[in-house]
Design a protein around this nucleic acid. Structure first.
Lengths: 190, 190
DNA sequence: TTTACCATGTAAAGAGTTACATGATTCC
DNA sequence: GGAATCATGTAACTCTTTACATGGTAAA
């Protein structure tokens, strides 16, 4: 009973990193940028979380560093191993674990009664602005590829990346519409 | 420079708790249930997080325990203080801090290319089912009050609680529609 | 030469989850 | 008498953020 089996890491961060590494070998720095530029709307992490996770993944044999040319520059470029790919696929196919949802805006909205009408309108306007910013940012992510073309070609490697962005876009737009409607109602009758 | 000012707590948990306590005095146990029954789709916490937070809120004077009747039963019922209300209102009116979004399903979707077509369909079906469950659960939350009536009366205290649920519902439905469409495309052409 | 970008970390603390532990009351 | 519910916590661990720290390379 004193047995201490390695605790299972449940986080998605490691799988996000493994996934990005299937696209190309990369350094920790590259991975951070790839988050920002491609999948940041769904997952992201700070450098200080990425580097230790890379070390753990290496220790577990899920990734390995490329042979480094001694150019005097400190740099580790990683690749996914066969074992890493296997683990990633297993995670992708597994049902998502159910945890609590956390949504700070909805929490505020729930208690908005406690503010004055002008304060309420301000909160709603801020959220609408934030959602608009997100949609604008998403356009930059979607820019690189031709949207309709990639969507039609079902065998295209970018199809699912595009699909993820589209799902995010759709729910963000729905939310923006709801918030705008609340704002109108609030300015008219509240 | 050795000064150690109390670290600011950035979490929304304390405000969720303060908010619930504006609705009625409650024990930690009550608060847990209120989360589950009212605002759980937007914020929630385990007992083991709620009890220590209640202690901290009490220490900071934001809530206070009611005088306990000595009925032999260990129980602390809390109320919000004037200071607590003030802090809650300040948080409600403040712009939300921008952090990273985290969405495990979108992360999976982004890398779905790595699975076989039947595995992909399975992942999509699971997510559709999960979203349907969420909508069904939301109906239970919305049941207690007459929806159209509460929405029309802009001065009603429940109006904003209903609004929060409606925004959540709208974005969940949009997401479900997107996922179903991907499923159809995937079953037809993939 | 200085600014922007490339590159990698450690330390400390806060936030959240899981497992464990205890005991009273109420309803059947 | 047993099960469900009420009620409160501690310990250990994992996950995430913030602050700090360092140094190389490339372009203007």
């Amino acid at each position: 009973m004193t047995e201490g089996p390695a605790q299972q890491r449940r986080t998605s961060l490691r799988f996000a990193i493994l996934g990005l590494l299937t696209r190309r070998p990369a350094t920790g720095y590259d991975i951070k940028r790839d988050f920002d530029r491609t999948i940041g709307y769904a997952w992201n992490a700070h450098d200080s979380q990425i580097y230790p996770e890379l070390r753990r993944l290496e220790e577990e044999g899920l990734i390995r560093p490329e042979a480094t040319k001694p150019d005097g520059r400190r740099r580790r470029t990683y690749r996914v191993t066969a074992g890493g790919r296997k683990r990633l696929r297993a995670w992708l196919a597994a049902p998502a674990e159910r945890g609590f949802q956390r949504d700070e805006f909805l929490l505020r909205l729930f208690f908005l009664q406690l503010l004055t009408p002008p304060e309420r309108a301000s909160v709603l306007r801020l959220e609408a602005g934030r959602l608009e910013d997100e949609l604008r940012l998403l356009e930059t992510v979607l820019g690189p590829f031709d949207r309709s073309g990639a969507a039609a070609d079902t065998s295209h490697a970018l199809r699912w990346q595009l699909a993820a962005a589209r799902v995010f876009e759709a729910s963000t737009r729905a939310r923006l519409a709801s918030v705008r409607q609340l704002l109108e109602e609030s300015e008219a009758g509240g």
